[in-house]
Amino acid sequence: MVEYMEAAPGGRTGEPAGPQSRRERRAEEAEIAHACERLWGDRDFVRLRRRYALLCGLLVTLFLSGYLTHLLLSAYARDFMSIRLADPVNVALVSGLGQFLLVFFLAWAFSSAARRWIDPLAARVRTRMETEHRPGEAAR
């Protein structure tokens, strides 16, 4: 009973500290590594990574182009930015507030696109991997 109460080499308590637990842990880690290798070669997972990268790249590009446009107009088109639209409001103020709107719009667009294109594919990959590999089954 004392064996189970001592900390295992990995620092976990409640597990046997003997060589059997290490062997089981190594088998578990090897099974997880094989599952990860299978995942990286899975066609749906590759499609998932590409969709995510494309979506993130597109949204980051849109954000940076909007921000750099505002920045460059503020630095080099002072006459344009100082045009008054209302008594205390000029183009620079509207453009600056537009940056907040752009960020909120891009966050909404990411959420919407992820829900439509990424989440169903991720759920399919997750369920396939969960059915193929259940933790603890490899060592038993």
Rank of each mutant, 00 (worst) to 15 (best):
V46Q: 15
V46G: 08
D79S: 15
G18Q: 12
R50W: 12
Q99E: 15
E132D: 15
D79N: 15
L85Q: 03
R124P: 01
R25I: 02
F45S: 02
E24H: 12
A17L: 09
M129T: 05
I118R: 00
F104D: 03
I32H: 13
S112C: 10
P19S: 12
R124W: 01
S82V: 05
E31F: 06
L64Q: 15
S111K: 09
T61F: 11
L85V: 11
R43P: 03
H34P: 01
E15V: 05
V91S: 02
P88M: 02
R26P: 02
S95C: 11
E24G: 09
V89Y: 06
L97P: 04
A33H: 14
M81D: 03
R128W: 03
E137R: 14
P135M: 02
S111D: 10
T13P: 01
W117K: 02
G41M: 12
M81R: 05
A123L: 08
S65A: 15
V125I: 04
F45T: 01
R49G: 04
L54V: 08
A113Q: 06
L85D: 03
V125Y: 00
T61H: 09
A33C: 10
S82P: 03
Q99C: 07
S95G: 14
H133D: 05
C56W: 09
E29W: 10
L58N: 01
E130K: 14
E132I: 04
R25S: 08
V89W: 09
L62D: 00
R50F: 09
W40V: 07
L102T: 00
P19C: 07
F100R: 04
R51M: 08
L54D: 10
L71T: 10
V46D: 09
S82W: 06
S112F: 08
L73M: 13
F45A: 09
G18T: 12
H34A: 14
A75P: 02
H34I: 07
Y76T: 07
P120R: 01
Q99P: 01
R116E: 12
A109K: 00
L71V: 07
Y67V: 09
E130I: 02
G18I: 05
P88S: 03
P19I: 08
S65K: 11
R128Y: 04
S95L: 10
R25N: 08
L85C: 06
I83Q: 15
A30S: 13
G136Y: 04
V60N: 06
Q20Y: 11
G41S: 14
S95H: 05
M81C: 11
P120Q: 01
L58V: 07
R51Q: 11
F105D: 00
G98H: 00
T69F: 11
L72V: 09
L68K: 14
T13R: 15
L93K: 07
L72P: 01
L54R: 14
E28M: 03
D42F: 02
F63I: 00
A53I: 06
F63L: 13
P16K: 14
R22M: 12
S74R: 06
V94L: 14
L121K: 00
Y67S: 11
V46W: 07
R51K: 15
